[in-house]
Amino acid sequence: MDKNKKAMSSLEEAIACPVCQKTLTTAPSDCNQCQNYFRQEVTKMPLAPVDLTPAQVKDGVDVVNFQPLRTELFRLPIISFLYERILPPIWAMGLRNRGGMDTEFQQCIEFFGQNLGTVADISCGTGIFARRLALLQQCQQIIALDYSETMLGQLQQQMQRDGILPSQITIIRGDITALPFAPNSLDAVYSGAAIHCWPDATTGVRNIYQALSSGGKLFATTFLQPLPSIIFRFFTADELQQIAITAGFHPDCVQVETRGVYGTLKCIK
């Protein structure tokens, strides 16, 4: 099997309908649950983005107020436009990590290790991590998922600027509370500075746990208390660890590192 066919095969086994829970290889040709939307939508992969949010799969239309403000905020075109133009320099000054995304990417790659299979960048934003991973060319398949269609639009533009082919990153609009992945289908998941934006952190981490294969790894970062939970939901380091354990990770396989108000969660299934 050549490289492209092998990558497509792994996609067919990994991506699942958030409604009927079937993959492309198991979805019926006539599905009463998702009205065949899933099978039709995934034919776009990997050359075009697919929308696998539950609302879209069920009704064919988006629900504007489906998520809390901390999630919906990132769908605003102005936010997605400024996301990569404003935030990285601020992160690099130390708000996120000393060295910003360069440091975070290196830490994540060291944690993931070599010879990666299927890796998902969940809550990818403009795909800063996914694009770096594609340029590294050390994994079989990269999936970039976000709820914001405007963020994913920026991702496509940045891929063109970086010279990354559409076939190198599969782009999915998805919902962290109903991830479109089959159980045990992902080798690693990265989620950068995102948990505080999710509708429900425990549900999100649980869904990631279920999607990871045995030995699969999660590297997630988020801002922490004492930042006030006004729009975003911030946690303590202990709460973050408990979320991972409640989601299914064994306590011995959960590590939380903090630097100021920034936390890194490392888990192994």
Rank of each mutant, 00 (worst) to 15 (best):
Q114E: 05
L116Q: 03
L116F: 11
T118E: 01
V119T: 12
A120R: 02
I122D: 00
I122S: 01
S123R: 08
S123F: 04
S123A: 14
C124V: 02
T126M: 04
I128V: 13
I128Y: 14
A130K: 00
R131E: 11
R131H: 13
R131P: 12
L135G: 05
L135A: 12
L136W: 11
L136K: 15
L136F: 15
L136P: 01
I143M: 08
D146R: 02
Y147W: 14
S148G: 14
S148N: 10
T150A: 05
T150S: 15
M151Y: 14
M151H: 14
G153N: 07
G153H: 05
G153W: 00
L155K: 06
L155F: 03
Q156W: 14
Q157V: 12
Q158F: 13
Q158S: 13
Q160I: 08
D162M: 00
G163K: 00
S167R: 09
S167Q: 10
S167A: 13
Q168V: 06
Q168S: 10
Q168R: 05
I169F: 07
T170N: 02
G174E: 07
D175V: 05
I176G: 07
T177G: 02
A182V: 08
A182R: 12
A182K: 12
L186D: 08
L186Q: 15
A188G: 13
V189I: 07
Y190H: 10
A193Q: 07
A194H: 00
I195P: 06
H196F: 03
H196S: 07
C197E: 15
